[in-house]
């Protein structure tokens, strides 16, 4: 099986946890001294996330415990540690990630097309983890900024259109109750 097919971008972000988690002692994974993100002098999250410039450390340093120490929502560390979500329900986690990988493998659509769809959906559901992961993934699949921006506009148009088309309901109701 080809490397690209084994893990999707969200999983790739958490690949260290998946690769090392199974065979590692718990103290290897979770026994490290932790720092909150602000301790590492992080700047603006969005800017750092877009440029992928947050502090990188040993893959073994990322830990579930650290998530508990985050002092705000949407810490970039969550993405790297996503694999630990399986701890509470390993079988469900396994099934989810297998399914996830299968979804993003090339099929009737190419991997690049699927990544662009994911990027658009990420903006629709406004998931910063997904935006981070699929911005990189789109670039790595060969898309450029113009193509990615058009994908985001598709999300924007559908989202805006969805609001506007509800105006039809407004119109009908207004017609019914109005003179």
């Amino acid at each position: 099986m080809r490397w690209e097919r084994r893990c999707g971008p969200l999983q790739r972000g958490l690949a260290p946890a998946l690769q090392h988690g199974a065979g590692a002692r718990s103290d290897q994974l979770y026994g490290l001294r932790l720092r909150s993100r602000s301790d590492r002098g992080q700047g603006n999250y969005r800017k750092n996330a877009f440029h992928g410039a947050y502090t990188a450390r040993s893959t073994l340093e990322w830990s579930f415990e650290e998530i508990n120490l985050s002092d705000h929502y949407y810490a970039p560390e969550h993405l790297k540690a996503f694999g630990t979500i399986s701890e509470g329900a390993p079988e469900l986690g396994r099934k989810f990630f297998e399914y996830y990988s299968a979804v993003f493998a090339a099929g009737a659509l190419t991997e690049r097309e699927k990544a662009l769809i994911a990027l658009a959906v990420a903006h629709t559901v406004q998931c910063p983890y997904c935006i981070d992961a699929y911005t990189t993934e789109c670039l790595q699949k060969g898309s450029d900024l113009e193509q990615m921006t058009e994908a985001v506009h598709v999300a924007c148009a559908i989202r805006g259109g969805a609001s506007l088309v509800h105006g039809m309901q407004m119109k009908e109701h207004a017609a019914k109750v109005g003179m």
């Binding site: 690209e4 090339a106 991997e111 690049r112 990189t136 670039l139 790595q140 699949k141 060969g142």
Partner: peptide, 17 residues
Amino acid sequence: PAGAFLAAPQSSIENEW
């Protein structure tokens, strides 16, 4: 790649190119 990311899998993008 024009940036800090990995190259696209060549087999998957050749036809598109």
